[in-house]
Computed example of a mutant assay.
Amino acid sequence: MASGGDDDERPIGELFGQLIDEGKAYAKAELGLARASAEAKADAAKKPALYGVASFLFLIAGVVVLCMTLALALATLVGPLAGGLIASLITFGIAYGLFLLARHEAERLK
């Protein structure tokens, strides 16, 4: 006659199957948690990103106005064409200087 404990024992294959099913369920739950966390962080970052883009656009507009003001001020001294060219050269010079600075910093990272 079999002992009372033999009824509770299940085959090893069935136990491994249950373990695999529970592991899959756990992995799906973790993935769902990670996805929900990422979506919450993305939603929280939308408004600051929009404000940042808007401020960058206004910064660009300010630089354009500054360059136009410089060109108009120089136009009264050297003429409109020369004033515009001088303002453009100054702007391009600043842009080139910033490009060189960025390239130098990028090379330092290597």
Rank of each mutant, 00 (worst) to 15 (best):
M1K: 14
S3L: 14
D7S: 10
D7T: 11
D8T: 07
E9S: 02
R10V: 12
R10N: 02
P11H: 13
I12E: 09
E14Y: 01
L15F: 10
L15V: 10
F16N: 08
G17D: 06
G17E: 05
Q18A: 09
E22R: 15
E22S: 12
G23T: 11
G23L: 14
G23M: 12
K24H: 11
A25F: 04
A25D: 03
A25T: 05
Y26N: 10
A27Q: 11
K28E: 15
E30L: 15
E30F: 09
L31E: 13
L31P: 00
A34E: 12
R35D: 11
R35Q: 14
A36D: 12
S37Y: 08
A38L: 15
A38S: 07
A38K: 15
E39S: 08
A40N: 02
A40K: 13
K41C: 07
D43H: 09
D43S: 13
A45M: 08
P48R: 03
P48W: 06
A49R: 02
A49P: 00
L50K: 09
G52V: 03
G52W: 00
V53L: 07
V53Y: 01
A54G: 01
F56S: 10
F56C: 07
L57V: 08
G62T: 04
G62V: 02
L66W: 08
M68I: 15
L70E: 00
A73F: 07
A73K: 05
A75S: 09
A75I: 05
T76C: 04
V78S: 01
V78F: 05
G79H: 01
A82N: 04
I86K: 02
I86T: 03
A87K: 00
S88K: 13
L89Y: 05
L89S: 07
I90C: 03
I90W: 01
I90G: 04
F92K: 12
F92G: 10
A95T: 10
Y96T: 14
G97T: 08
L100Y: 10
L101I: 11
A102F: 14
R103A: 13
E105C: 05
E105S: 10
E105N: 06
A106L: 08
E107V: 09
R108W: 01
L109A: 09
K110M: 09
K110Q: 11
K110F: 10
